[in-house]
């Protein structure tokens, strides 16, 4: 079984910042907007190098989404930056009408997504954003898993013409994907080959899935770990090919099990190949204050939770 290691931990939001800075140097049409969270979104480098292409909006996210929509008219490619909660729930109608329905080429870039935001607590820990965004017709939804993948995704979405939701996080997590990867929107990445169970994971849960697969392997269970970084459009084929071999699946995400990746996978399976599935996700609950590791454990979002879900789903085959 292929195993993965890491030499350093970095936050995915810094991957976004590095990607944005690179775009500032390579794509003159890229502009950035922020609602008073420059440091948190790691936008400093872009701003320092391209002050004329940066728009500080102040604490006014609705206005930011509208301005971003307007900036596209005349050929700019706006990247908005704020926390995931304020990038989605707070401004849902602005994104719906002015960006998605209007077909505007805006990249909604959202940091501090999910429960690993940690100590700030539930007001800031959105666990519903993937659902909100994937329901908008035409919206691409991406949740990369580490620093390198987030940077690659940031570069890739500038090349794609249309609205995108890019979701990333606050804590430092293992960097285990290659720095020189090519990011293909809508294309799953298979990390390990396996025959007993498919584990489909997104975002911070991908590393946890790899840790789980290592432990499961030692227990004689062969897990195939697939990274779905693009929740919409979903790589149906990668999922269906894998379950045709394994016959059961666990989905893992830092999101409510209602509306998240797991439900998208369940829809594909229900349509094409009904398959036993277990959901590693929050179970229709708000989060709370705590360290990321404490919260991942309490809300069942770590390697151990994935291993337990695998054992459960294997019995349903």
């Amino acid at each position: 079984m292929k195993t993965y290691t890491y030499t350093e931990k970095k936050d995915t939001r810094s991957g976004f910042g590095a990607g944005l800075a690179e775009l500032g140097r390579t794509n003159p049409n890229v502009v950035a907007l922020c609602a008073d969270l420059i440091g948190s979104l790691k936008m400093d480098e872009f701003i320092k190098e391209n002050p004329e292409r940066f728009f500080q909006i102040g604490i006014a996210e609705a206005n930011m989404m509208g301005i971003a929509a307007g900036l596209t008219i005349g050929g700019k490619i706006p990247f908005t930056g704020t926390f995931a909660n304020f990038s989605t729930g707070r401004v849902y109608d602005q994104i719906r009408q002015s960006i998605a329905y209007s077909g505007k080429n805006v990249k909604v870039c959202a940091s501090h997504a999910g429960i690993t935001l940690g100590e700030d607590g539930a007001t800031h820990q959105i666990l519903e954003d993937i659902g909100l965004m994937k329901m908008l017709p035409g919206m691409v939804v991406i949740n990369p898993c580490d620093y390198n993948q987030t940077k690659a995704a940031t570069l890739a979405i500038a090349e794609y013409d249309g609205p995108v939701y890019l979701r990333f996080g606050r804590p430092a997590v293992p960097v285990f994907t290659p720095a020189d990867q090519k990011f293909e929107i809508g294309k799953a990445v298979k990390f390990t080959e396996g025959t007993d169970v498919t584990i489909v994971a997104t975002g911070h849960l991908v590393w946890e899935a790899l840790e789980a697969s290592k432990a499961l392997n030692e227990a004689g269970i062969s897990a195939e770990v697939i990274n779905i970084h693009t929740i919409k459009p979903l790589d149906d084929k990668a999922i269906l090919d894998s379950v045709a071999k394994t016959g059961c699946i666990v989905t893992a995400e830092e999101h409510n099990y209602m509306g998240g990746l797991g439900e998208s996978v369940a829809r594909v399976l229900a349509e094409h190949n009904p398959t036993p599935q277990e959901f590693v996700a929050t179970k229709d609950t708000f989060g709370e204050s705590g360290t990321p590791a404490q919260l991942m454990e309490k809300y069942g979002l770590n390697s151990e939770a994935i291993q337990n879900a695998v054992k459960k789903v294997l019995k349903r085959k």
Partner: peptide, 11 residues
């Protein structure tokens, strides 16, 4: 929503 959009287009 229109004034925000108009501002963006103006910028």
């Amino acid at each position: 929503q229109g004034m925000s959009v108009a501002i963006g287009a103006a910028q």
